[in-house]
């Protein structure tokens, strides 16, 4: 869809001269630390990015990164602007109707509410969430009033300035904000949504999916995936 083609890092985890294979283009959002972010030198970084690099190395693929807005990240995959998505994307039934996922590279994670006061009613209040996320779908069904924003950062800003009562997002994303801003706190109970994070690929692209899948299985076995979890997601479960 939107030809959101944007430079990031060109990664040459080169498969040597042996394979004249074409470059696999990986997409991420670059706005959801610690999953993915654009660091201050302007390069993509984060758990998704390190996993993607490692998977490509294991599978002997040449990969490069592109960033794409969250709301058009699936459409752009489907129309072939890149080949895989690693963007902290949870596997859900709705998404699986449209794209395929590899096995998970992170176990299902809790989503949490964060608010500026402790007496917020998360069932009936105004809850901010990013457009097109599982959290947004959950809020819409929960009976609370959903306010949608295009980027994750705006959802937190909405709570800070009182636009929304609380924000619902992945706990790993929110934890930095809560630690560093004395006004913000976790409220309500965590909810478990989705089936963990997976690498999204086109349904027609079974070849690529199998390769990435095999590489992930290898990384789970040799413990290198756990090392990356320790580096970026200290509160998350190991494989």
């Amino acid at each position: 869809m939107k030809p959101a083609i944007v430079a990031a890092t060109i990664l040459t985890v080169a498969a040597g001269a042996a394979s004249a294979q074409s470059v696999i283009r990986l997409a991420t959002e670059g706005a959801y630390p610690p999953y993915n972010l654009i660091d201050d030198s302007g390069k993509v970084a984060g758990y998704d990015v390190d996993v993607g690099d490692a998977v490509c190395a294991h599978a002997h693929l040449t990969c490069e990164w592109v960033t794409n807005d969250w709301d058009s990240i699936i459409p752009n995959l489907v129309s072939g602007n890149y080949d895989a998505i690693l963007a902290g994307m949870s596997m859900t039934e709705e998404r699986e109707k449209v794209i395929d996922f590899t096995q998970n590279y992170l176990k299902p994670e809790p989503s949490s509410y964060v608010a500026a006061s402790s007496d917020v009613d998360v069932k009936h209040g105004v809850i901010a969430a990013q457009t097109g996320t599982i959290q947004a779908a959950f809020v819409q069904e929960s009976g609370a009033t959903l306010v949608e924003f295009a980027t994750p950062e705006e959802t937190v800003a909405a709570v800070r300035n009182g636009e929304a009562d609380a924000v619902l997002a992945d706990k790993s994303y929110l934890v930095d904000y809560v630690n560093e801003d004395p006004d913000l706190a976790f409220v309500g109970e965590d909810v478990f949504l989705g089936n963990g994070l997976g690498i999204g690929v086109r349904q027609s692209d079974t070849d690529l999916r199998d390769k990435l899948d095999a590489a992930l299985a290898e990384m789970k076995k040799d413990g290198s995936l756990n090392a990356l979890i320790d580096k970026w997601m200290p509160n998350s479960e190991h494989f």
Binding site: V6, P34, I38, T151, Y177
Partner: peptide, 22 residues
């Protein structure tokens, strides 16, 4: 249109940053 123009960067740079960033 997804081009990284000045609005894209203004939004990206202006948003609040936690200590995940330098």
């Amino acid at each position: 249109l997804g081009v990284e123009d000045i609005v894209y960067w203004a939004r990206e740079l202006g948003g609040s940053k936690t200590s995940a960033f330098s």
